[in-house]
């Protein structure tokens, strides 16, 4: 084991942990800096979506897997409730001047940094007409995940599950709010969540309102095959969500293919919110001297992990929207690029 850490990983979500583990496996000392009081980030809030006794490959369990491996790994020093205040370059090394919970100052000097700062969920409030926070029974996919993880599957029994509408692309693929990109994960988690709901409450009639469902990939094959028959899939995005009769949510939508205007009420509406760069991404970009792409994610060289600043790499959703498994894979690649960079300097 090396005495001096040779890399810092900023962000203790699934990508940050995976990158740290990859480096630790090679005997490279790592400093893992996490802003919150615990590791995990967004990946730790994902609930299990197995149905019928079969895993749907959502990757929600991979966080605890990685956390356990991190506990066993040698050479990773974790600093919780710590964030980077300032970055200085000292003779090719990066000095990270950090602040801890009680205003304690900390600094690390490392040759290389992997940014794995993750993402923010797009606020459903960005889609004002969808009435989130104003209408009862309009929740986000994330709310549903949190409910299922926090209270277990039995929580489904308390949901008003008669007619359920899943509305896709809430905030994603929307040039009007500067997020013209697909968030990659929402169709997957929404379809999986819908199957979980349906398993608990077979009487639920579930409809998907979508632009284009992203269902490719082997991990989605079973889910999509089951969903196709079980759910009503509507090409058309709702306009204004309103309070309907008997506590229901009503909205009008245009069926894209027929042009018909339809008004329908639902007992529960689940908004599939997407992924956006973290609120502090611009600040971090400025601290490290990075570029952001037009959507605000950290810009990288064509390899997808090297930023334009030598010794600084990006892993996971801070670089582009990704699923949990893809974030892990990307983090491994970022770690590899980091190792090559370190080796080249040795």
């Amino acid at each position: 084991m090396s005495d001096r850490p040779r890399a810092a990983v900023i962000g203790g979500g699934i990508a940050g942990i995976a990158a740290s583990l990859n480096l630790a496996q090679r005997g490279i000392g790592v400093i893992l800096i996490e802003r919150e009081a615990q590791l995990g980030g967004n990946a730790s809030t994902v609930c299990c979506k197995a149905v019928g006794g079969v895993c749907q490959h959502c990757g929600g369990c991979l966080f605890r897997d990685h956390l356990r491996a991190l506990e066993r790994a040698e050479g990773v020093s974790v600093f919780l409730q710590t964030h980077v205040e300032r970055v200085e370059r000292r003779e090719g090394r990066l000095a990270l001047l950090c602040e801890r919970a009680q205003g304690e100052a900390l600094s690390f000097e490392v040759p290389a940094v992997i940014l794995a700062t993750g993402f923010d969920h797009i606020s459903p409030l960005a889609k004002g007409p969808y009435g989130y926070g104003l209408l009862p029974h309009v929740i986000t996919g994330r709310d549903l995940e949190a409910l299922l993880q926090g209270r277990g599957r039995t929580a489904c029994n308390e949901l008003p599950l008669g007619k359920v509408a899943f509305i896709q692309c809430v905030g994603s693929r929307d040039e009007h709010n500067g997020r013209g990109y697909c968030s990659q994960v929402c169709c997957r988690y929404a379809l999986r969540l819908a199957r979980v709901l349906q398993e608990s409450r077979p009487e639920a009639e579930i409809a998907f309102f979508k632009m284009d469902l992203q269902t490719s990939g082997r991990d989605m094959a079973e889910t999509w095959a089951a969903a196709r028959g079980a759910f009503r899939i509507v090409a058309g995005m709702p306009a204004l969500l309103e309070r309907g009769a008997e506590g229901k949510v009503a909205f009008r939508y245009e069926e894209v293919l027929t042009g018909r205007q339809i008004r329908e009420s639902f007992d529960l509406v689940v908004l599939a919110t997407g992924i956006q760069p973290r609120a502090d991404a611009a600040l971090l970009a400025e601290q490290f001297g990075l570029n952001q792409d037009p959507s605000g994610f950290f810009a990288t060289a064509p390899d997808g992990v090297s930023t334009l600043v030598p010794g600084v790499f990006a892993a996971g959703c801070c670089q582009a929207p990704r699923s949990i498994a893809e974030s892990i894979a990307h983090a491994h690649q970022a770690a590899q690029a980091c190792v090559l960079y370190l080796g080249g300097r040795a």
Partner: peptide
């Protein structure tokens, strides 16, 4: 019973 690491609440129940 099948379970996953994220099912602490279900385990409790």
């Amino acid at each position: 019973r099948a379970i996953s690491p994220t099912m602490a609440a279900d385990l409790k129940a």
